[in-house]
Design a protein around this nucleic acid. Structure first.
Length: 593
RNA sequence: GGGCGCGUGGCUCAGCUUGGAUAGAGCACCGGGUUCCUAACCCGGCGAUCGAGGGUUCAAAUCCCUCCGCGCCCGCCA
């Protein structure tokens, strides 16, 4: 067995502390297995130590006062490599590690791992993360892009934590919505309903992004169809054509064009997909008919009065008014949920874990999907990551129909414009291309950070001034800190990877604290992947940048004497760690800004 | 009516997974800091009965129950 290089600089210290606590407890006549000590250990420490052990529970078991137990353990703590001091504060045993050793262990690990510091080796089965999957009917609004940012960040974190991840975008080219688009565009413009023509105000033309071009009239078409049964019937025929494998000539092409336009918007945010799965594939390969056949055999299969096939899902506790889940219309066409069952069967065949990132309006869909999987005897289930809506200050979620949608492309344009202004205000030496490059990276960083910093289960109120903030708890603040570190390194003339240091030269409080923050990065990555709490990654990036800036103002680097090389090494480690954190957030680390 | 989620300084959030010591940030506001490594920065100040009530516990923002408020969903749409 080759001993694996530890991925976390804290690991040996925690191990030593736990051993010491256990030994000390025994000396004090108490039983404290190392696993229990580890379980109860507070890794964040408190005001008095790097790690803390609350003695209450141990004391309760022994029927002794907690403060007395803490004092006894502190007194009996054996001399331990890596541990500098142990003292009791009331009922807490506070342990300080040897800062010099922690600094050495941390910087050594950062330099050895480089771009993979914080990551773990790839282990375990393949994971599928499906996210975004917005219908190709028009441009992204900001509400929808939360899915993409969340899913992309989750995928990056999972990869870093050792999973082999494949991201998928499920393209709905089959439903009524896609059919509406090809239906209207198959008609000459002079045959469009008046309301639809009015919605198409003649903007755009050749240069316009196709998602915007084709999507602009979508709400008007949708509204028109609600009022006109004859037109709706035409659309239904298109659905049938698609379902039977003979879609209208323009169908796939328009869908692809709109999708390409949408993807171009995500590309600016650094979001790409490994695979695209088209819904119609599941018709073509016969898997939807196969799923329907399995459903038909269910004892809970029922035929509705008009001939539609449904499953009586009352047994699954679905909170519907009617517990009948229709899986096939009377005209033989399938429904979204039915195709989604076929899609998931395919995923289960390829992946050990299946994760779906869904907006909370899909909550019921998720439960229905589970119920139908159960109905056909499938035991595996997807893991759902549900996020809340982005709402508008006036109240309510972003909605195209209500006119409250903020388009991602508009937010992007505004963010780039503001970033350009900021860049130009402080840099006159840059070439135009560099100004653009930096402005776009800052814009993307601001947008991504603004979304990812909030827990997915919290609703987000969209405010322009917040989304465009470049200060404080923001993406640009972190990027700026990175650029500051990079600048320092450039001027130092020392390459990061060859940085040499003497750990005992780094003894200022700001230096030790900065190392501590660097050292906890692997723990944050693991936590983020395990919990899905992507906001922890954003919080960490801000914390590290913040501590770096404090250090920067507190101690000179290039102008210092004996500490110069060691401080440069520390800056190199910060730059690396900050860069790795930004990478996981999908934000471009800028060498200068 | 049922289901899911949320409620933490004036505003926006973190902390809740795994209960632990004085509840952390950012914005706004007030006061400072640049002959010096990038001021998109830093330092100080102001400001919180963690929605309400009850329960569990040595200990609750964190776990459980009830209530109140807000958002969304409850389609042969996706």
């Amino acid at each position: 067995m080759i001993p694996e290089e530890p991925s976390d600089p804290w690991t040996p210290f925690i191990g030593a502390v736990v051993e010491g606590l256990s030994t000390a407890a025994r000396t004090a006549g108490l039983e404290l297995p190392t696993e229990v000590a580890l379980d109860q250990l507070d890794l964040e420490g408190g005001p008095e130590g790097d790690v803390a052990f609350p003695a209450h529970r141990l004391a309760a078991g022994a029927r002794r006062p907690p403060a007395e137990v803490a004092a006894a353990i502190a007194g009996a703590f054996p001399p331990t490599d890596g541990v500098r001091s142990v003292h009791a504060t009331g009922p807490y045993v506070n342990v300080r590690v040897d800062p010099t050793r922690l600094i050495r262990a941390t910087l050594d690990l950062v330099f050895a791992r480089g771009a993979t510091y914080g990551h773990r080796p790839t282990t375990g089965g393949p994971v599928c993360i499906e996210h975004t999957s917005a219908n190709p009917t028009g441009p992204f609004h900001v509400g929808r892009v939360r899915n993409a940012i969340l899913g992309d960040t989750l995928a990056r974190a999972a990869r870093a934590a050792g999973s082999h991840v494949t991201t998928q975008y499920y393209v709905d080219d089959m439903g009524r919505q896609a059919a509406m688009i090809s239906w209207i565009w198959a008609k000459p413009r002079d045959q469009w309903p008046e309301s639809v023509r009015a919605a198409d105000d003649g903007r755009g033309g050749e240069a316009e992004k196709p998602d915007r071009h084709y999507g602009r009239i979508y709400p008007a078409v949708s509204a028109y169809l609600k009022e006109h049964a004859d037109a709706a019937a035409e659309v239904a025929r298109v659905v049938q054509q698609v379902e039977s494998g003979t879609p209208p000539a323009n169908h796939r092409e328009i869908t692809q064009q709109i999708l390409d336009g949408m993807l171009a918007s995500l590309e600016r945010l650094g979001i790409r997909f490994d695979e695209f799965v088209w819904e119609s594939d599941f018709l073509r390969d016969g898997s939807v008919p196969a799923v329907l056949e399995r459903m038909r055999r269910s004892p809970r299969a029922v035929t509705e009065p008009n001939g539609a096939l449904a499953i009586d899902a009352a047994a699954h506790g679905l909170p519907k008014e009617s517990t009948h889940v229709v899986v096939q219309r009377a005209d033989g066409t399938s429904l979204y949920v039915t195709r989604d069952v076929a899609y998931h069967l395919q995923k289960f065949g390829r992946f050990a874990r299946v994760v779906d990132v869904l907006g909370q309006d899909h909550q019921l869909h998720a439960r229905t999907l589970d119920a139908l999987l159960d109905e056909i005897g499938e035991t595996r289930r997807p893991e759902f990551v549900i996020y809340q809506d982005i709402t508008v200050p006036e109240g309510g979620r972003m909605s195209t129909r209500r006119g409250s949608a903020v388009w991602l492309d508009d937010l992007w344009a505004e963010a780039v414009a503001r970033a350009r202004k900021e860049v130009l205000a402080r840099r006159e030496d840059l070439r135009e291309a560099d100004v653009d490059r930096i402005a776009e990276a800052v814009a993307a960083g601001a947008i991504r950070f603004h979304i990812v910093r909030v827990a997915p289960e919290k609703p987000v109120v969209f405010r322009w001034e917040d989304a465009l903030s470049f200060e404080g708890r923001s993406g640009p603040f972190v990027q700026y800190s990175y650029a500051r570190a990079a600048s320092l390194l450039r001027r130092s003339g020392v390459e990061g990877r060859t940085a040499t240091f003497e750990a005992d030269r780094l003894s200022d409080p700001e230096e030790v604290e900065l190392v501590r923050v660097v050292a906890k990065f692997p723990r944050v990555v693991a936590y983020t992947a395990r919990s899905g709490h992507v906001q922890a990654l954003a919080g960490y990036a801000h914390e590290l940048a913040d501590q770096f800036n404090r250090f920067y103002h507190a101690v000179p680097v290039l102008k210092s004497e004996g500490e110069r090389a060691s401080r440069i090494a520390l800056v190199a480690a910060v730059r690396q760690t900050l860069g790795n954190a930004l990478e996981l957030l999908g934000i471009v680390p800028l060498e200068t800004m």
